[in-house]
Amino acid sequence: MTDLASNDRWFSRLNTLLLILAGIIVITPTAWMVLSSFKQSFEVTAYPPTLFFSPTLDNYRSLSDTTPFPQYALNSMIVTVGSTSLGLLLGAPAAFVASWTRITWPAVVTLVARMAPGTLFLLPWYLMFRQFDMIGSYWALILTHAVITMPIVIWVLLPFFDNIPRSVYEAAQVDGCSPFRIFYRIALPLVSSGLAVSAILAFVFSWNYFLFSLVLSNSDTKTLIAASFNFIGEGSTNWGGLMAAATLIALPPLILATIVQRWLISGLTLGAVKG
């Protein structure tokens, strides 16, 4: 019996050790990126690479001098906030109706957008927006990014709406409440945490999305993610600046993801997995 117990203890020690090792593998590349962003330009390309150095903020400071970084950041903000709001505006009532009527096929149709390669929609969008002279406009980017955000909002909110007992709706109906009133007076407040989760996930996915703004933006409306492509071209000589840009671009999604980590997996898998 004691043998088994000590066996068990060794097992859980090994478990902890392997877990730490996995953690190190996961975090090292990111840590290297952040570390490199604080290195002087001569040090960041030093070979052998250095682990200890006197940190500097030069790379961050020079970002706004050498690139239109603040403008790109503003563009990213406009497109992301715009498409997240649009996604909520379209998706929240749609999820409510789908949950109330139990008619979910329209929601399933939006999954096509989630599964098909973005390039499938990009050609017609390009022709459409060119027709309306909207290439390079914020609206083209907000509308296309809403194709990402709306399905997220619908599928994250559906289980939240489903959790509201039907008796709540019935009681409200008896009191003469119209469905529209029930939606914004009763249902929406009850799913407020779902709204927050869906908004944050939509924000992260819109922020991270590369392809649409690569094609549909111009130099004035380019998002940070699309501009990264240019940073790399210029960054071949300036790794410090490149890593500073990469760190700043990754910061908003990482902070937001930490806030919603409890709902992250069920949200990301669109309800396929309860995490």
């Binding site: 953690g23 996961v26 975090i27 590349p29 990111t30 290297w32 990126m33 992260v204 922020w207 991270n208 590369f210 993610i225 990264s228 492509f229 940073f231 790399i232 960054g235 490149l242 890593m243 840009a245 990469a246 671009i249 990754a250 999604p253 990482l254 993801a257 930490t258 980590q261 992250l264």
Partner: peptide, 15 residues
Amino acid sequence: FISPFMMPPVVAGMM
């Protein structure tokens, strides 16, 4: 553990 897949794939590429 969530940091790798919540960062933009583009940033992962740069890094």
